[in-house]
Design a protein around this nucleic acid. Sequence first.
DNA 1: TATCTTTTTGACCCTGAGTGTCATTAATGT
DNA 2: ACATTAATGACACTCAGGGTCAAAAAGATA
Lengths: 229, 229
Amino acid sequence: MTLRVKKIGVRGNKRFFCPDRCGRLRQVPTSPAPTTRRSLRGRPAATSHAEIEQAAFQLFVTRGFEATTLDDIGEAIGVGRRTITRYYPSKNDIPWGQFDRTLDGFREILRATPTELQLHEAVHRGVLAFNDFPTDASPSHRDRMRLILTTPALQAHSVLRYASWREVIAEYVAERTGTRPDDLLPQTVGQVSLALALTAYQAWLADESASLPQLLDATMAHLRSYLAG
Amino acid sequence: MTLRVKKIGVRGNKRFFCPDRCGRLRQVPTSPAPTTRRSLRGRPAATSHAEIEQAAFQLFVTRGFEATTLDDIGEAIGVGRRTITRYYPSKNDIPWGQFDRTLDGFREILRATPTELQLHEAVHRGVLAFNDFPTDASPSHRDRMRLILTTPALQAHSVLRYASWREVIAEYVAERTGTRPDDLLPQTVGQVSLALALTAYQAWLADESASLPQLLDATMAHLRSYLAG
DNA sequence: TATCTTTTTGACCCTGAGTGTCATTAATGT
DNA sequence: ACATTAATGACACTCAGGGTCAAAAAGATA
């Protein structure tokens, strides 16, 4: 019989060790599987997406992403590994945080763009506005993007997020040109817009003093001059 | 003691069951870790990258990528799971096959492009030439790309391959413009070229009768008209 | 022919991500 | 008090990945 010695360590109830947690902002109870529903009935949630995200981020930047296990994260906030996997579908999804919710904001931004603008001008402004992040975020936008864009596993996983981002653009372009989102023009614009944004982001991370909006303009300018010959 | 019942099934030596394998083309012995060296001394390789790739591909398209385990693949060609992980660094790397070697060809193609051509014209022709695949490949280029571009895990993993592809373009652009490969223009051109190619590929997979070269031209044309306004 | 050398294989070991199951816990509502 | 509800944590399992090492199977050599 393989001895089962591990994990007998007392983790116990978390509220027992940290009763003041109740006072924190828990704006969205964010029950494990359903992300937006709130529950007032059953056992209260022992943690939140935000708490997991911040504790994990701390560990990711200090120990490195690969070297941090889900057990480490759970231990940091006094929660079991299984709980974490219920809040986030995968370890790779933690650094992105609540990205999906920001996509709705992106849609709003594009919809609010004046239609007098040329299509490419409207999309470009939309991209600029989407990437105008508040500076007080924690972890900071730059740190988050640095982690995502320099960790191979996260680089890879991010394409799935990018696909949703591109679809927002494709839908907007389709609506304005009377085509379908999966037609060639909307898809091309979505892909190219992402390409420009990623290039700008990479330069932004490489140069601490750089301005992201200016870099977004610069990549677009480079593309124009490149195509002009 | 945990009973160890599994894997007692007789696998035995493979050549014993399939003595005619010796006659096959084994153009590159492709020893496990070193990819290009050939060995005439020690124990002969029981399999090859090509054999693994074809057996795996067969299983991927029939059972699905996720549903196929490395054990399945190993069983299909009479080889242990550990052997497969020696030939390929990860399951995700199997469908790409010998992609890295084709990148050298890409470099050659670009280098051979007449310098009288405008930069964007040269890059575009290079991309076209790179994607002019022989039609007798097995698995076919289309089937391989379909698997890669429709399986989420492979979509994600592929960005790491794409990075090398983009670098080839960035290096070429850097050389022709007197900049460094990590400057903004070469990086932008690399990212945008990939964006156009991926869009073309997706349309190519969606329409059986489509021509890939024409779609590559079409995405470029769409980008031009989009930017022209 | 017997032995040495070289190289690959396969068995065995472990870690870690991800998932299903289910009893337990901790709240609300009656 | 008791029922209801919902999250948690313990447990078991599969699979990918990787380290280690004895055994296998060839060529080379005596």
